[in-house]
C-alpha cells in the first residue's frame, strides 16, 4: 500500500545508504569478505526463513517449534562461513565462480530507534559455476542499518528468497 505521508528521510542518508548497498555488493562480488564484515554491527542478525506454498484460504497455523530457516546467523557464524571460504579447502569454489549482484528498488523508512533506518531492497544474484552453469537467485531484503562513528552499519537483514525450489545445489552466497 502506498504510504500517503511517509516520514521524511534526509537526501544525504538516502544517498549514503544506497551507496552502502552498492558498495557491499561490490565487496562480496570481489570476495572481499573481511571488508564486508566491517560493514556489519557486532550484534548483526542475518536470516532467511523457509517459505511454503499454501492455499490462500488455509488458516491452519504454521509449525510452532523449529520453524524452518535457511540462514539464522550472527556475526560469529558469518565469520565462520568466511573462514571456511578462506580455508583453501573449498574445492567447489576453485576455480572461483563468477558472481555478480544487482541491487534495486531501494526504499528507506525510519526505524523505532533514532539512529536506525529500515532499508528495503531487491537483490538478484547471478552465479556462473564450474563448467559454465549459470544460475540466478532473486530475493527481497529488509535491512536495519544503524548510524554510528563508522557511518552506517548493518544491524539486521531478513532475506525473502523468491524460489519455492532452490534452483541450485546450494546457496553458498551472501545476500
Amino acid at each position: 500500500m502506498l504510504e500517503m505521508n511517509p516520514a521524511p528521510v534526509l537526501v544525504e542518508d538516502m544517498i549514503a545508504l544506497t551507496q552502502r548497498l552498492y558498495h557491499e555488493a561490490r565487496l562480496l562480488d570481489a570476495e572481499r569478505f573481511e571488508d564486508w564484515l566491517e560493514l556489519l554491527c557486532d550484534d548483526v542478525t542475518y536470516r532467511m526463513d523457509l517459505k511454503r506454498r499454501r492455499f490462500r484460504a488455509d488458516r491452519s497455523p504454521p509449525a510452532a517449534v523449529g520453524a524452518g530457516v535457511v540462514f539464522n546467523e550472527n556475526f560469529a557464524r558469518l565469520k565462520l562461513r568466511i573462514d571456511r571460504l578462506r580455508s583453501g579447502y573449498v574445492w567447489a569454489e576453485d576455480p572461483p565462480n563468477f558472481v555478480r549482484r544487482v541491487i534495486s528498488n531501494v526504499e528507506i523508512e525510519p526505524a523505532d530507534a533514532e539512529n536506525e533506518v529500515i532499508v528495503h531492497s531487491v537483490i538478484v544474484i547471478h552465479r556462473n559455476r564450474i563448467d559454465g552453469l549459470a544460475r540466478q537467485f532473486t530475493a527481497g531484503r529488509t535491512d536495519r542499518w544503524r548510524h554510528g562513528t563508522q557511518g552506517w552499519c548493518l544491524a539486521a537483514r531478513d532475506i525473502a528468497l523468491d524460489h519455492a525450489v532452490l534452483p541450485d545445489s546450494n546457496i553458498n552466497v551472501f545476500f
Binding site: 523457509l50 511454503r52 509449525a63 517449534v65 524452518g68 552453469l133 532452490l166 541450485d168 545445489s169
Partner: peptide, 12 residues
C-alpha cells in the same frame, strides 16, 4: 519432522 521442507534442484 519439524521446520518444514527445503527443496533444491541438483543436476545429478
Amino acid at each position: 519432522l519439524i521446520g518444514g521442507c527445503i527443496k533444491s534442484v541438483i543436476n545429478a
